[in-house]
Amino acid sequence: MRTRLGALWPLGAAIALALPVPLLDLHFIHTESAPIGLWRAHPGAPVIGDVVRFCMREAEARMTAGRPYAGGRRRGPCPYGTWMLAKPVVAGPGDTVIHTPEGVWINGRTLPKSATRPRDSAGLPVPASKYGLIILGPGELWVHSPYADGSFDSRYVGVVQTHHVSGTMQPLFTWLMPAQRTALRARGVSPSRCSLVACVRR
């Protein structure tokens, strides 16, 4: 009996380690739009600086389905088989957003390197959200990442409704890739001083 139990202990340990994952709602984020690593999703109203995960609206999902920044060929839980996006929140209810092809302004302050690109890195056209002045109402968020020059965020998917947000992400074990550090420095932010929220908080 001892021999049989001893042979089964690795399986038992694996099950014990796997069981808490769904309960804790753990996720490995590997997009450059947020620090790479292990995060836990938790409920609650997002605030400026939080990283949120959400599904795109159907129009944007239909246009970008199958592309790497929409999850690639592996089908996800969102419209048209796309995957949830994980992006930092930079503006919320009551904030004023000005979106132009040349850049984005939040309450009169420009977001560095926030021009909207007409095509992605593969040369394919990408959607551009509505240009002009937007005053965010209740339950509305604007997401934008300082960690990646080509972040697929509200410049393309538009205002994010909080009822499309499935969780606010809490970092557990994360790090910055070289490209993310370069992007932060280009925005005048020191990666060594940049906490997971300080890069996007006002």
Rank of each mutant, 00 (worst) to 15 (best):
A70T: 11
E58P: 09
S190C: 05
G49N: 07
Q180D: 01
L124E: 13
Q170K: 14
G123A: 00
R201H: 09
D153K: 04
A59D: 09
P127V: 07
T162K: 06
P138I: 04
K113A: 13
W9K: 08
S129Q: 09
V200R: 07
Y69W: 03
A16M: 12
T82G: 01
P127W: 01
V104L: 07
E58K: 12
G76P: 00
I36W: 11
S114V: 04
G158A: 05
F54R: 02
G6D: 02
G188Y: 04
A122S: 15
R73L: 06
Y80G: 00
S129V: 14
T168S: 15
H42K: 15
S145H: 01
H30K: 11
P77Y: 03
V52T: 03
A16V: 13
V159I: 12
T182K: 14
A45C: 06
A183R: 02
L38R: 01
M177A: 07
P118Q: 08
T100G: 00
T100A: 08
G94D: 00
L19F: 14
P191M: 01
W142S: 01
A122Y: 13
R53G: 09
R62E: 13
V126E: 02
C55Q: 06
M169A: 10
V160W: 05
V197D: 02
P125F: 05
R74Y: 07
L19D: 06
A122E: 14
R193F: 03
P46G: 01
C194T: 06
H164L: 15
R67K: 08
A122H: 11
